[in-house]
């Protein structure tokens, strides 16, 4: 693997973590967030400030960044319980703009120049190189996948999906939707915090525009492109849309055009996403494995 491939792999890993988090908020719990990049930024800045100014090692900055981001996410979650669907979507755009403004106009966050000099993590006194950083990112992705699977099988995950599919019905069965929405936002933004921390230590330099609204659009596009509400969709969507700019690199002048057209055509002709529940491709894959299904829970989330 050359350095170029390593860079792409790390970038896609970070995308996967971001998209998995958003999938918990928007896919499972049904709360459309168009400001996920703001939390990516909170995690990145928290980690950067802790390690550059306060000498935290990566291994300590990462968990603190995750917790800090989840707390900010809880605030957004609390706001979201007061808003209905589309107002929430727009408000999250607003939160994204406001957070970026704070980064940009406050000297504490380094202003428009951002923060530099963030180092790769050290491991027993040895500072990791870029190829050695890849396993760290991969481990975080694996941890994220494991956590998501645990979540989906837990009462919490069941309640989140219930809130996402019919809030009134969920309430009538004892699920207090405000509380569960806040939890969903906390978990989803914690993922973004982890991604932010990984990103900061990978790039060594971060600036406000890395976390702007276009980034939020990229993340939600990945989730929807792969198949919203499924982990496999989040992962595949991140890989496909993460690779797309590289694949289209020879057509650099038409990159945005291709990206827009891909989104547009996908939504128009395969609104369930590439391998979302009910998409043609996923139905085909499932029928291949139909024989192995257990009766009683046949149609449930077959596999990942």
């Amino acid at each position: 693997m050359g350095l170029y491939q390593v860079t792409i792999a790390i970038t896609i890993g970070i995308y996967i973590i971001l998209t998995m988090g958003l999938n918990i908020i928007t896919g499972y719990t049904g709360q459309v967030s168009l400001g996920h990049a703001a939390f990516f930024g909170v995690g990145a800045y928290a980690s950067a400030i802790l390690s550059v100014r306060h000498g935290f090692p990566f291994w300590a900055a990462l968990p603190v960044a995750i917790i800090a981001t989840a707390l900010v996410g809880a605030v957004l979650g609390a706001v979201s319980t007061r808003l209905r669907e589309d107002s929430l979507a727009i408000t999250t755009i607003g939160i994204n703009f406001v957070v970026v403004s704070v980064f940009k106009y406050s000297s504490f966050f380094g202003g428009a120049l951002g923060i530099g000099g963030i180092r790769y993590p050290s491991f027993f006194g040895h500072m990791l190189t870029k190829p050695e950083y890849l396993p760290v990112v991969a481990a975080c992705v694996a941890l994220g996948i494991w956590f998501d699977r645990r979540l989906v099988r837990s009462w919490l995950g069941l309640a989140l999906r219930a809130v996402g599919q019919d809030e009134a019905a969920a309430e009538s069965l004892g699920v207090d939707s405000p509380r569960f929405k806040i939890v969903a936002f906390m978990i989803g933004t914690a993922y973004a915090g982890a991604a932010g921390s990984l990103y900061a230590h990978f790039m060594s330099f971060i600036s406000p525009q890395d976390f702007g609204f276009p980034m939020s659009i990229s993340i939600i596009s990945m989730a929807v492109f792969g198949g919203l509400g499924t982990l496999r969709g989040a992962i595949l969507g991140s890989c496909v849309l993460g690779l797309a700019p590289e694949v289209f690199r020879p057509l650099v002048d038409y990159r945005n055009l291709m990206y827009g057209a891909m989104l547009l055509l996908m939504m128009r002709f395969m609104p369930q996403g590439l391998i979302g529940d009910g998409s043609v491709i996923w139905e085909r894959i499932r029928s291949l494995f139909a024989a192995r299904r257990l009766p009683g829970r046949a149609d449930e989330r077959g596999g990942v």
């Binding site: 979507a89 945005n256 057209a261 891909m262």
Partner: peptide
Amino acid sequence: PLLGSSRIVPLIASIGMFTLMEDL
């Protein structure tokens, strides 16, 4: 054609359309 799908689908389609238009 997207009226029946969940509300985020036309939103993302619309974002795709907007990106496409800007580049055109």
